[in-house]
């Protein structure tokens, strides 16, 4: 014991003089502050800032990897919170496609007076096409109507027994603006035209579908906000524990002059990593889920004679999901650290 101390005692004075020498040289080199040196200093600070960011980015990832189970559970919780609103958003996106098709197929049907002559029909058609709200017209003569009717009902014999064709000629009109209000106004105006017996449009089901779509949109938004808050809470709670675990370290670095930004940085990176990990897991779950559902959805659609493909995230969707999850993780960490740093005072 005593031998060790005497050895150290001997080492001390030598070291002291060495430190004093380097100290003196340093002071002399930093005292004149020319413009050039200011630039060098600013550059050095910028480099130091970058260096610390890089170091903390790697360090926080290393801490995550060191506790794989805990980190994975946190990320899984984030992923589950992200999957539901993302799936809803996806299905809504495909509903938008259906909506667009609806708009394209929104038409009015004008039934003409019974027994109008062919020349009169031509005149009415011209008058209809002259309207600025009318994009296109398609004439269905009484004979065509009868043929379609027979085909769709399979009542050839019964209808053949009728003395005369009971169906009027009809014009299918595609409006330029397919909004319900514009179509209602157009239908009113057209029914006042001479030679037009009646204008039919089935707005109710279009309206219903639109409202359903609106409901879906709002539901997705509400769920998105709620589950986004969920992600913030999950990350916030994890970071709160991390801050608590490193309390001593935070106290010490604060004592020796660390800024809040310096203390906060590793935790912000941890939050961002959690968010990114959760986002990647959510992406994986969504891909798996849509693969799993693809076959039954396709056969269900086929049974309705429709072709429907489950929507996928695509490049833009995937980037959005990962960016949002990373930002949410970062934000959750920021809130947690800011709240808890205020409570940590060096003793």
């Amino acid at each position: 014991m005593s031998a060790r101390h005497s050895r150290k005692g001997a080492a001390t004075p030598r070291g002291a003089s060495a430190a004093a020498r380097t100290g003196g040289r340093q002071e002399a080199s930093t005292s004149p502050r020319g413009a050039r040196q200011q630039t060098v200093r600013a550059q050095g600070q910028w480099q130091a800032w970058l260096r610390h960011h890089r170091a903390m980015c790697v360090d926080s990832l290393r801490r995550l990897v060191r506790q794989p189970v805990g980190s994975l559970l946190t990320m899984l919780a984030i992923a589950i919170a992200l999957v539901l609103p993302s799936a809803l958003w996806l299905s809504l996106d495909s509903a938008k496609l259906v909506d667009a098709e609806l708009d394209a197929s929104a038409t009015l049907t004008a039934y003409l007076d019974k027994g109008v002559s062919e020349s009169e029909t031509g005149r009415i058609l011209e008058a209809l096409e002259a309207q600025s709200e009318v994009a296109a017209t398609e004439l269905i003569t009484a004979e065509q109507g009868m043929a379609e009717f027979q085909q769709s009902l399979g009542l050839d014999d019964a209808l053949a027994r009728l003395d005369e064709n009971p169906l009027p000629a009809a014009v299918v009109i595609s409006p330029t603006t397919p909004s319900p209000e514009a179509m209602a106004a157009l239908s009113e105006r057209l029914s006042a035209m001479s030679g037009v017996a009646e204008v039919r449009l089935d707005l109710a089901w279009i309206e219903r579908l639109r409202q359903l779509a609106e409901l879906g949109r709002r539901l997705t938004l509400a769920l998105g906000v709620l589950f986004g808050l969920g992600v913030l809470l999950v990350v916030g709670n994890t970071i709160r524990l991390a801050v608590e675990n490193r309390r001593k370290e935070i106290e010490v670095v604060t004592l020796i002059g660390a800024t809040h930004a310096f203390v906060r940085r590793p935790f912000l990176y941890s939050g961002a990593w959690y968010g990114l990990g959760g986002g990647l897991l959510a992406w994986g779950l969504l891909t798996l889920g849509s693969d799993w559902l693809a076959a039954p959805v396709a056969s269900l659609a086929a049974s309705y004679g429709a072709h429907y493909q489950l929507p996928t995230l695509g490049l833009v969707g995937s980037t959005t999901l990962l960016t949002c999850s990373t930002l949410l993780g970062w934000l959750g960490a920021w809130i947690a650290v800011s709240r808890h740093l205020a409570g940590i005072k060096p003793r």
Binding site: G44, Q45, Q47, A48, W49, R51, H52, V252, V253, I256, G257, A258, F262
Partner: peptide
């Protein structure tokens, strides 16, 4: 090294 890392000195 901690106080120097806080000050952002080069390694």
């Amino acid at each position: 090294a901690l106080p120097l890392e806080i000050r952002g000195l080069a390694p």
